[in-house]
Amino acid sequence: MDPDSVARTARVPHGGTTDETVLDFSANTNPDRPDGVDDVYASALAAATRYPDDDYADFRAAAAEYVECDPESVVPTAGGLEALRLAFEVTLGPGDSALVPEPSFGEYDREIRLQGADPVAVAPDEILDVDPRPHDVAVVCTPNNPTGELADTERLRAFAARCRESDTVLVVDEAFLDFTDAPSLAGEPGVVVARSLTKMFGLPGIRAGFAVATGDLGARLAVARRSWSLSTPAAAVGAYCMRQTDFVEDTRTRVARERERLADSLSEQFDVVPSDAPFLLLDVGDRDVRSVVETARKRGVAIRDATTFPTLDSHVRVAVKHPDENDELLRALADV
């Protein structure tokens, strides 16, 4: 991290609310979690009086099965954002350049600037066609947050090949990829994949995730990783969750069904952006975004003001939850 850049960099707004009196549609986390997690956590907590085994062999094995890569390529991290920071720390320095999608996850811009590097914004649907040669790093988010579109796998692999030819490290944020049946780029040479267990498994407070990279790039990540990067409970719960394949499939089915139902209903009032993710981006047109957000909250539902994402000035984002909760969302947004 570049010390001189820290003073020039600000924190980034996120969704999520601690107000338990409202339904939270502002954060894109699964409202369900796998059966058995409580017991796994309790057992691991009893072992937390000792330092974790810094090898994290079981967690890495589970992660490797989950994304189909070599366990030796897995680098455990405290959430997907920690994986992203680690990737930028080992690839960027002052004066370097990084391609980033915009609008997208605001932490890319912030984390790149903290290294003293310069983010170069490109529309998410155009980034795979950009020449990576002038840049040290390129970032792709798939499905993209907040727009929800999934990158075409063949185009993404072709872009990865062009990045290798130009010695540009490709960082692929797959935080929402497990809500789709698209394959991971984990293990692709010259690529750092960042994964989060927050979204699919409904456990944002656990802070568990991982990065995947091979060769010299993977070795640099492994050396730079903080010691004891996962707590004992986070490692145990994370490994357990990644082996719950029926839970993942059931979640995908529910999200796809409810996303389509929500999109159909909401399209009567708003311009709904097509999505492959567990959320929908809504253009509210000439309505005041703040008023839409405040009205929904007064009706018991928190939604995300998406004007905090660059280039969006008339948008809100809503998560996809259980059918009864989604009905509450529709009621909260009726006639806003």
Rank of each mutant, 00 (worst) to 15 (best):
D19M: 05
D19S: 10
A7P: 04
H14D: 02
P71W: 13
D70R: 10
A64N: 09
S73K: 11
R33P: 00
A27L: 14
A62M: 03
D38V: 08
P13G: 06
A64L: 03
A27S: 14
V75C: 10
D55C: 01
D58N: 07
D53T: 00
S43V: 05
L45N: 11
A62V: 03
A7I: 09
A61F: 07
P13C: 06
F25T: 05
V12W: 03
S43A: 13
L81Q: 11
E68M: 03
Y66C: 12
R50C: 04
A48G: 09
H14M: 05
Y51S: 11
Y41R: 12
T17D: 04
S26C: 07
T17P: 03
E68F: 02
A42Y: 06
A44W: 11
F25G: 00
C69W: 14
A64Q: 09
L84I: 13
A63H: 07
E68G: 00
E82M: 06
D54P: 01
V12Y: 02
P13S: 10
T49P: 00
A48S: 15
D54S: 02
E68K: 13
D53Y: 02
D38M: 08
G79C: 03
R50W: 06
V74M: 03
P13I: 01
A10D: 08
A27C: 05
D38A: 12
A78R: 11
A42C: 09
T21H: 12
R11T: 07
T21S: 15
S26R: 07
D55A: 15
D58G: 04
A47P: 01
N30Y: 00
Y41Q: 07
G79H: 04
R8H: 10
P71T: 12
V40C: 07
N30S: 12
L23I: 15
A42S: 13
C69M: 10
E20D: 15
A64C: 09
V22T: 14
V12N: 03
F25K: 08
Y66V: 05
R8P: 00
P13Y: 03
S26H: 10
D32M: 09
E65D: 15
A47M: 10
E82C: 00
N30M: 02
R11A: 08
A48Q: 15
D24G: 00
D70L: 09
V74I: 08
A46H: 15
R50K: 14
A7W: 12
P71M: 09
F59L: 02
T18P: 01
T77P: 00
G15H: 04
G79Y: 01
G16M: 07
Y66D: 12
D39W: 01
L81V: 07
R8S: 10
Y51M: 10
G36C: 04
T49N: 13
V22H: 14
R8W: 06
D35E: 14
A44S: 12
G16F: 06
A62D: 02
A64D: 10
A57F: 05
A10F: 07
V22E: 13
G80W: 02
F59I: 01
T9G: 06
F25Q: 09
G79M: 03
G15K: 05
T18L: 07
D53K: 03
A63V: 07
A47F: 01
N28C: 08
Y41T: 09
N28S: 15
S26Q: 12
P34A: 03
A27E: 12
D70E: 14
F59Q: 05
A61G: 07
A61Y: 06
P34K: 04
D39M: 02
G80T: 04
